[in-house]
Design a protein around this nucleic acid. Sequence first.
DNA 1: GGCCTGAATGACAGCGCTTTCACTCAATGA
DNA 2: TCATTGAGTGAAAGCGCTGTCATTCAGGCC
Lengths: 338, 338
Amino acid sequence: MPVSIQDVADRANVSISTVSRVLNRRNIVNDVTRKRVESAIEELGYRPNVFARGLMLRRSHILGLVLPDLHGEFYSEIIRGANARARELGYKLMISSVAADDDGSELMATVADQALVDGVAVMVSEVNARTRATLSTVKVPLVVLDGEVQGVRHDSVVIDQRLGAVALIEHLIRDCGARRLVFVGGLPTNFDTIERLAALQQVAADADVKIDPGNVYHLDYQYDTAFELGQKRVKEWSRRRFSVFAANDEMAAGIIDAAIDAGISVPDELPVVGFDDTRIAAMTRPRLTTVSVPMSSMGAAAVDLLCQRLEDPSRPATKLTLQSELVVRESCGVNSQT
Amino acid sequence: MPVSIQDVADRANVSISTVSRVLNRRNIVNDVTRKRVESAIEELGYRPNVFARGLMLRRSHILGLVLPDLHGEFYSEIIRGANARARELGYKLMISSVAADDDGSELMATVADQALVDGVAVMVSEVNARTRATLSTVKVPLVVLDGEVQGVRHDSVVIDQRLGAVALIEHLIRDCGARRLVFVGGLPTNFDTIERLAALQQVAADADVKIDPGNVYHLDYQYDTAFELGQKRVKEWSRRRFSVFAANDEMAAGIIDAAIDAGISVPDELPVVGFDDTRIAAMTRPRLTTVSVPMSSMGAAAVDLLCQRLEDPSRPATKLTLQSELVVRESCGVNSQT
DNA sequence: GGCCTGAATGACAGCGCTTTCACTCAATGA
DNA sequence: TCATTGAGTGAAAGCGCTGTCATTCAGGCC
């Protein structure tokens, strides 16, 4: 039923070799012959069989993208960026998600399909022995997003959260007069949480601002849990003149809402800042001061890196760093944009 | 370099046929032999070549998902739902996007990769002759999301927006006392816009509520354009006691913000409702009254339908309808949840 | 013993493509 | 005139797998 290269060859009165040559624009084919083949292809609506081609070429022109979860704008933006760039470069994108709390086996099952993809970009929320072991079995080019896996050869694209985070916290301390800070992050093993907390501690130390270990909370990046935490703590935070640095916008929104419910004014009685600059950052009231991270660029960069390595497998491992940027809105108390 | 079925056969001292049989659990293989083959597979870390297999079986276990755009929560939720179900059923998902204003050629290029996928789910924002022509060339099972394409054999999963929309408008009219309505939708050719406007007109007619054609606006589902429209009209709407029905939450948020900027209170002076119940619907102030549509279920259902047809190609075309549901919050003026 | 049966396995023909190698046949130079 | 070129093409060998058919061989029956 499906039309094969043989059908085209028959119709054009040439051998399949010639059709193949026309298809791949390789050795010179006589103009007249090529035209004949091309119209045969057109008339028959012929499309080369991807499998046969993949079998020969050992190339599928498919790139894998493995994300910890598909929830939230963060990931969807990565997909969008990766998809756009992949299309530009003539690749297809295969998406998989892995539960954030996966022990590695699921990651394994997903990445194991390397047999199909030419390369794979992986974002692991947490690097441990299991994930390391899993990733070391990957035989195709590997790009790690927003993290690094020791002992495994891979390129990576990371976001320099430090710069943005530092700018954010300096703004909070210098311009908004914060003296005491609360940090609300994800799990202590989470790469982003580690980075953001480190930035906080660094700036705080420099500015002689206090961060009590008791004021560092590890939640799960969700609105609800942050809201619950806020319900319990918001009055105390406000009374003691704290400012809240949440490691993402969702949690910042949760805390803002808890504060408002408790009759506490944000930012006057409790400044709150977020991270990521997702869609909701502009929707909260007050609007969130946050750090914009180039999510879709990250996806695009991953695809770039994969393709570059595919072209030149011997090039040295590359680490691409994307910058993050402070976005000042209203939730921190001083709107320097006005 | 890569280990093939022959390597396994050699190591286990059997023929490749036997290895293949072990792999596919087909004809009975002697227990002793099977164990030997299995351990050979294990030791060699053998994984069947997807292309060779696909070439024989004409099955890739990959499903395609083509969306008009990858922006926005709506699409990312579809991807999430589809991905989860695909994984459950042993399929992989390949994502592509097509610009919303595509004339069909891009859709063509994307869907043309049917050679690779076992089936494809397509969401077209607008059905016209071009898209119809493109989709009629698809040779694998096709599921159309949120729409129908005449003359092309396909299954479909649609969201019954009518029910939710009707409930929303009835709530607006009956419970909130709306007498005059403004509709802010997408392009007049957009399926969702057509459905939602139709529901509005139906209910309005029944309730003897007026909808002036001059109060039907066709925008692009974006916050910004709605905000701009709001800046121009919000005072007039408020003065004339209008209520605004926006065809998605983004536009509703834009109008709310325009109203607030103009010093107009929502909902007291201008009730506004949205559609979709995306993340931002709970983030606006006041929170949006909207209609929740089961986005991720839609993705999952598409995958289900595809797999079912793959199993039984002769089954009659199926149309799966998902229900939408009114979500009352604050932006309409009466919070019946309290 | 000769024959049949059926379980277990192997040999081999493709699937549709790319690619190597060989071939044809003008045009060219000696 | 004849060997030599090289552009253009075809024949055929796989790529790694599945599935059909053939083969082997122990056990059961007459």
